[in-house]
Design a binder for these strands. Sequence first.
DNA 1: CATGCCCCCATGTGATCACAAATCGTCGCG
DNA 2: CGCGACGATTTGTGATCACATGGGGGCATG
Lengths: 219, 219
Amino acid sequence: MTPAVPPAASDGQVATHERVYRTLRGRLMAGEMEPGVALTLRGIGKEFDVSMTPAREAVRRLAAEGALTLSSSGRVTTPDLTPERIEELAALRALLEPELAARALPRAHMALIERLRTINSRVAEVVAKHDVTGYIRSNLEFHRTLYLRAQAPAMLAMAETVWLQLGPTMRALYMARDRSDLQKHHRAILAALAAGDEPGLRLAVRTDVTQGLRMLVGL
Amino acid sequence: MTPAVPPAASDGQVATHERVYRTLRGRLMAGEMEPGVALTLRGIGKEFDVSMTPAREAVRRLAAEGALTLSSSGRVTTPDLTPERIEELAALRALLEPELAARALPRAHMALIERLRTINSRVAEVVAKHDVTGYIRSNLEFHRTLYLRAQAPAMLAMAETVWLQLGPTMRALYMARDRSDLQKHHRAILAALAAGDEPGLRLAVRTDVTQGLRMLVGL
DNA sequence: CATGCCCCCATGTGATCACAAATCGTCGCG
DNA sequence: CGCGACGATTTGTGATCACATGGGGGCATG
């Protein structure tokens, strides 16, 4: 359709498929899409005004990360997780994130704690506005900001992959329930951080991570 | 080149890109390729007698899993990990695999232990033959067979992703060193399994996993 | 009115091509 | 003899097309 401007022309140093990938990834992680929604390569291509090729690459990359589900015929949908799978992913969070927090602890200075407090107050705002997507986004930003200090990129990447897989589910989950007690857990994390209390931090993170997802299991 | 036989013609129910992906994945995980080796889409296409399209998909999928490294210009190489990255991946194994083993423990009956013993004896054979690839393959089969019993597919997938990332490095590692003591750790795992001793099993798995990779750090 | 079947169209797959950029080797200059 | 610049070629990227397939809507039948 635009053979006159073939590849990286107006690219801000990022390939087209990368742009598509990042946009879709952001949507999925933030819970902007419900579970089980179908996507098509041509539809994605049309939305981003690109051909099927970069759309396909972005989709396959997301599928490789578990952020999208491919049917046997190659059709693409957002994942609709079974309760067992949700529990398993929650267990993975409970395994990875306390470790990341513990590794960040020695490097967590006052400036970081202040930044986390700021993010946490933003969480309160979006909760008040019933902004599910905004809530998920700022909640994850709280965790990511802390874990970045762990200097463990591979471990952080794994945690983010879990978040990505849970994105649509978290939307469905938080839409149905109240989440007023999430702030409490974040405050416990901050307290343990400030006190340099590693066992307390591990427990606080584990509780925060497990709590929200345990709600769905009860359904 | 073959427009007369377009898509899934002689496919044994698997798409071409899937076949390419699986083959490359197997090679990488078994350590058949050294770290830092360059791959090209056209080269892969030629080897498998396919066009660039499925080669590209397979490569990008592997890159998404960390099994291949993409340079900024899109060139593809097998990963050449820094010691820090190796340590981090070892830490991930030490985190994930004891958990998988512990979850498998209640379901581990005599038949499974026998099967593990058989696999373990095959490990001895390939070690005697200085078959690095065969060693890595049967060692991982030992672990996978055990973890399959954990009924935790997402967690197992994460562990396999770590193995995949370590593939080429493990080759370089095991080529340089002797690994006669690996059998000992596997026997400790089997003993703890047979005794139903969860703490002992966790420790044995953790030791087995950490040991081999700790060798390289000493270099 | 419910149900089952069939056909059509939407969709994924793989091949191919044009293009830009990066890489590597070579040649010329200091 | 070493180093830097230039050029050919290799390589990834994105667009487009032909084709097979499977899903869903519509029609006929009970």
